[in-house]
């Protein structure tokens, strides 16, 4: 019966587990390669500025004198270009995404300098 073709399919699906997650309660599982956000090991960074020059959207800012590295989270397109060009391999791609927000989200990292107070 051509009319009942889809009905049998749907009835079968009635007895299976739902295909969707209850999202805010059950968190999304990430895969190993998922490109979520850029993370930095700031103590290994030499502030060469390569990442900021190669970034297609100009989301990364590097200040050599202040030993500061910052990123505009919502400007970043997760292309992982900076991770590849980094000579010290101190940048990495982490799984979790940046949380949604109304304004711009800027994360600033300072290197620990021995004669300065360490950042908290």
């Amino acid at each position: 019966m051509t009319v009942l073709h889809f009905s049998t399919y749907v009835i079968k699906k009635l007895f299976q587990k739902p295909a969707t997650h209850l999202y805010p309660i059950k968190k999304q599982k990430f895969f190993e390669r998922t490109r979520g956000h850029v993370a930095i090991d700031i103590d290994a960074c030499i502030f060469c500025g390569m990442c900021s020059r190669k970034c297609p959207t100009g989301a990364i800012g590097v200040d050599r004198t202040a030993k500061q590295w910052d990123i505009e989270r919502l400007k970043c397109i997760q292309c992982s270009c900076c991770v590849e060009v980094c000579p010290k391999k101190c940048l990495s791609m982490e799984n979790a995404y940046t949380a949604p927000s109304e304004g711009s989200v800027k994360d600033v990292f300072h290197a620990r300098v021995p004669d300065n107070q360490p950042d908290r």
Binding site: A19, F31, E32, R33, T34, R35, I77, Q78, C79, S80, C81, M93
Partner: peptide
């Protein structure tokens, strides 16, 4: 289609734009 997107995510890291 969701299963295909999951394959993309495991192999490339992106669901839509793979880079």
């Amino acid at each position: 289609r969701e299963q295909i997107l999951d394959i993309f995510e495991t192999t490339t890291g992106g669901r839509v734009i793979f880079s």
